[in-house]
């Protein structure tokens, strides 16, 4: 059975390939279809959606692989203990604290697990006896739902504001400039793709970025000189 530490070493293998293959197969590489295109790619680019969907599929399908049976009762006991606060300590869970009451509570958790109770039932057991503040995180219902909803608004609101701000700043930029690039004008990628095809049919040498004088790079070097 594989465990993560066996895999941790493997983790660097792709990196290794990423670096070594790099020089040789740039032509191959540039044919991969899922790369974003165009400077206005973000709002209406189907390639991006495909990538996002791919990731989502991998992600969601993998969630099905988690099975509760794989986790021993003891592991579950620790996970639960990490979700229950020690009533007499300042801000520690019973999993971390060595206080007597924490030990008793850990034993109780184990006892209830052995009886076959679910995590939710065990939490309820402690809430009934110690009050809501025994839970290390508020339950997502009633007033406490606020604790969970507000972060969602913060995050999406924040990203939304950022995107709107960029859009506004861009609009000002487009108005200030008279000639936007073709790809920006109609959001149509055909011109660009044709250009790519032309480029690809050229001699391979011109595609290696390090030698192609026209290819822009993030480390655009005249800018780099005095960062």
């Amino acid at each position: 059975m594989f465990r993560v530490r066996h895999v941790a070493a493997l983790f660097f293998i792709p990196l290794y390939f990423g670096v070594t293959l790099h020089g040789e197969s740039k032509v191959m590489a540039s044919r991969f279809p899922f790369v974003l295109s165009g400077s206005r790619a973000l709002p209406n680019n189907s390639a991006l959606l495909v990538v996002a969907a791919l990731f989502l599929i991998i992600f969601v399908s993998a969630i099905g692989c988690i099975r509760e049976e794989d986790i021993t009762l003891e592991q579950r006991a620790h996970q639960l203990a990490a979700q229950l606060m020690c009533p007499v300590c300042d801000g520690q869970t019973i999993d971390g604290s060595s206080a007597q009451i924490s030990q008793d509570m850990r034993l109780k958790v184990r006892e209830l697990l052995d009886e076959g109770q679910t995590n939710a039932e065990i939490k309820d057991y402690f809430v009934l006896r110690y009050g809501e503040d025994i839970l290390a995180a508020p339950e997502g219902s009633g007033f406490n739902l606020l604790a969970w909803v507000v972060p969602v608004f913060i995050v999406f609101g924040g990203i939304g504001i950022a995107l709107v701000a960029i859009k506004n700043m861009r609009k000002a930029g487009i108005q200030a400039k008279s000639s936007p690039l073709p790809a920006q004008k109609n959001g149509d990628l055909s011109d660009f793709l044709a250009q790519v095809d032309r480029d690809l049919s050229g001699p391979p040498d011109s595609l290696t970025s390090d030698q192609d004088p026209k290819s822009p790079s993030p480390a655009n070097q005249n800018e780099e000189a005095n960062f």
């Binding site: 792709p14 390939f17 590489a29 540039s30 991969f32 990538v51 790079s217």
Partner: peptide, 16 residues
């Protein structure tokens, strides 16, 4: 970013 540079620079990290 031009589409070209996006493609050039993102392909390897994404693949990795």
């Amino acid at each position: 970013a031009s589409a070209r540079s996006l493609k050039q620079w993102f392909i390897w990290p994404t693949l990795t």
